[in-house]
Amino acid sequence: MLARGFSDPVHDAQGVFRAVMDALARPGTLQPLAATLEPPAPLTPELAAIALALADADAALWLDEALRHDPAVADFLRFHTGARIADAPSEAAFALVSDAAACPDFAAFAQGTPAYPDRSATLVLAVCDLSDVEGWRLDGPGIRESARLAAAPLPADMLARLARNHAGFPQGIDLILAAPGRLAALPRSTRVQEG
């Protein structure tokens, strides 16, 4: 049987959006996200909530290999969002990545163009651990002096990837890191350095 969507579609979606908006506006802060969904595994409740809040027929989703493995995940997302599940990562507005350590290279996703840098993907990575008291040092718009962020699991070369992504500003991808019950974001405008 198909798992249910938001119990209150209007206000649940607004709550998820505001958490994502606050996370992007203040990189390095942890925003609470009470995701009550019970989507088919390995789709996490947080990834599902972000997809249901923001994806639709105008904003295609891309699923990583782990999420594509069980067709129930795509069925769930298609039914509740109406979004197309893109075959190629470059066609997606949002990429859902449940196996964050195996996230494809950022260059595979839409980067926007010099004239339209907004035509770029947002990657949503499921992580287990998320902390704002240790880890990388962040600075840039939205950050008062500096902030810290640690997340796991992530690809081994994550720092180099984030540096390349930031160097391409204003083009690039934006990153949402979603752990159980909370999320943080790293927009392309954030400079990330070793802690």
Partner: peptide, 24 residues
């Protein structure tokens, strides 16, 4: 309507990620 809100919300998120850039 919710579809319009989602479209505007996506624009807001990109606007925040690219400070000062005008998102259509």
């Amino acid at each position: 309507d919710e579809g319009t809100k989602r479209m505007i919300r996506r624009a807001i998120l990109k606007a925040i990620a690219i400070p000062g850039y005008q998102v259509p």
